[in-house]
Write a protein that binds this DNA or RNA. Structure first.
Lengths: 192, 192
DNA sequence: ACCTGAACACCGTTCAAGT
DNA sequence: ACCTGAACACCGTTCAAGT
């Protein structure tokens, strides 16, 4: 249900079939496709919570762990990444986690607004990376474009081939960059 | 065509109608839906190139400009973001830009692999942010979830409301974090 | 409480046929 | 070269009806 069973595109009718049930039966459980997707997205974020996060650690460690866990969950369900990415998700767990992180960061010198934005940025990065992997996994086609061009002139080609290779370094860079914001006292960046 | 005309979901049939043409006529110009999407994605990246980038500037400035331009193009076409995000895009311009940035970064102390990964990470971040904005713009629904819960306990709520607020700070953080990689001599992170 | 069956208004894509 | 028309195998969703 989450993995899409491993085969082609989702459809209510196919889901019904896979469940051995008339498609229309689904509309007793969900108001429609969209509501079902929201349920899936919520399950995904709860899947992070299962293995609990290092709540007592300093914020860079907590945020890193959160990013890594979210990423792992998403690439474990490549077909669901797009579902997660294309709609705003609000879950009990996600809100708790975020609020706690904000508190830690504020205690470390961030303004609340800076902290919130930092977490959103981190989440956007994680989702972007997961989407990269999911795109090549779901579509099956490699990022190389089908045209027969020499690979030698394209430095990105071989780098893109191992999709997801860049996730961890990028995550570390972002966290490090966020630390820099607060490392040199409060910097008066206009909030607009 | 790129903006989806401002109304509801895309379909070949609707596109045909909007063009005053039988849907089947589209299949003379494109092999199918997927090929049309690729064409759209390619147009998007070319739209960045139009206003040319600061090629001669140091890499942090070049990458920042690239990120900002890409982001601007994407949020200008909210309905197309998902098209761009869910498939690997390879364009003449994108490859040129990336390769040049890699050269600059290598000259500054990065390994080629590090530079490539950095650029991919940056792209992922930009797409993730654009997707956030596009999600709220396209679905129309605010990220708050429809449940009537008090907003006071949710620090993220008001932050999320102004979607895209976090893009620029996050971008700067990421670039700064990347600079740190090279600022203290070559760090021997295992490439696996 | 949960599912079926038929129906409605849609889809993407093909292929022969027109001009 | 470019488009039409009809056809095929699909969709999501509804609603009355069954158990």
């Amino acid at each position: 249900m989450i993995d899409d069973g491993g085969s082609s595109a989702f459809s209510m009718r196919r889901l019904g079939a896979e469940l051995g049930v008339d498609p229309s039966a689904l509309y007793w459980h969900f108001r429609g496709r969209e509501e079902l997707f929201e349920a899936v997205a919520e399950i995904l974020v709860d899947e992070i919570g299962a293995a609990s996060l290092p709540w007592t650690a300093p914020w860079p460690e907590l945020l890193t762990a959160y990013g890594v866990r979210l990423y792992e969950v998403l690439i474990r369900h490549p077909h669901a990444v797009i579902v997660f990415a294309s709609r705003p998700v609000r879950s009990e767990f996600g809100v708790r986690a975020a609020n706690h992180a904000v508190e830690l960061m504020v205690a470390d010198g961030f303004t609340a607004a800076q902290a919130v934005r930092a977490i959103q940025a981190l989440r956007a990065y994680v989702v972007g990376c997961a989407l990269d992997v999911s795109a090549t996994a779901v579509t099956g086609l490699q990022p190389r474009r089908q045209s027969a061009r020499p690979p030698a002139d394209n430095l990105l080609a071989q780098g893109v081939l191992d999709a997801g290779e860049h996730f961890r370094p990028g995550l570390d860079a972002m966290i490090r960059g966020l630390s820099a914001v607060v490392a040199r006292g409060t910097r008066g960046q206009p909030p607009a």
